[in-house]
Design a protein around this nucleic acid. Structure first.
Lengths: 136, 136
DNA sequence: CCTGAGTACTTGCAAATAGCAAGCGATCGT
DNA sequence: ACGATCGCTTGCTATTTGCAAGTACTCAGG
């Protein structure tokens, strides 16, 4: 079931963001999809943080409803479902990049690879384009 | 009380972000503090989205614990408390700016003022510096 | 076909969290 | 010294989360 306690957004961009992914699981699913190119339910289910299958199903439903993901049947295998990020989700990559920079500065146990940081810092726009390329 | 269902982050920048503010209320409090310069409990309590006082108190406690806010007594008025953003919180401004750009593109009822968008697009770094200036 | 395994979910229930309304305690202004 | 202000806390119910198990389809092999 889709959560009932929601924010009434009315124009504010941060409230709009909070409504779309102001929830730890939604954010982590976005990470899996955008950054690790996960496409299937079972791949998402086995993310390191350990999401429960009912929560995953409810979040995927919400993300589909809010236009972050599209769901399609795998033409090569009728049991599989493919979840892919929409333009709306892909357009979050710049914000993700800022979060990566932020975390690499403030997380004492950051695991962001040095070469990734260097690549982002050398040319941020290019790094974002390269992260996005596999989806186009 | 601070929530018990947490993410085990272990190095991932997005999980680190989810742990710090992967919660709609925390994100909205950050907005009030960073973007609207709110400093007091009652100001935060009256945000448009209608947060309950116990939830606000628990989130403020969590944000203090995670180093996003510092709490100090108002020297001019002993009943008042001043919450101010730390460096860690201020360093989220670039990500906020990206979210503003994202929402202005994808929210059909966006209320982001056109001149703010123009200012950001003209010179993003300068806009961020200006947003940050009042806190330095 | 039949069967077993793969994949994407659902369901039922207990535990945790959110939201609401009310109250409490320490200042402060008068 | 008294009421108002401000920042919470408490008690209670509603909602959500997490867990373990189960269901429903599909495919591949014999």
């Amino acid at each position: 079931m889709t959560p009932k306690y929601k924010v009434d957004h009315t124009g504010c961009p941060i409230a709009f963001a909070a409504e779309a992914f102001g929830d730890k699981w939604t954010l982590l699913i976005l990470r899996e999809v955008l950054l690790f190119k996960k496409k299937h339910f079972d791949e998402l289910l086995s993310m390191r943080e350990g999401i429960a299958s009912n929560i995953l199903a409810s979040r995927l439903k919400g993300m589909e409803a809010s236009g972050l993901l599209v769901k399609q049947e795998d033409p090569a295998n009728g049991r599989r479902v493919i979840y892919s990020p929409t333009e709306k989700a892909l357009d979050l990559l710049p914000a993700c990049v800022e979060l990566i920079l932020w975390a690499s500065k403030h997380d004492p146990e950051t695991g962001v690879p040095a070469d990734m940081l260097a690549r982002i810092r050398r040319n941020r726009a290019k790094a974002i384009r390269e992260m996005r390329a596999p989806f186009d």
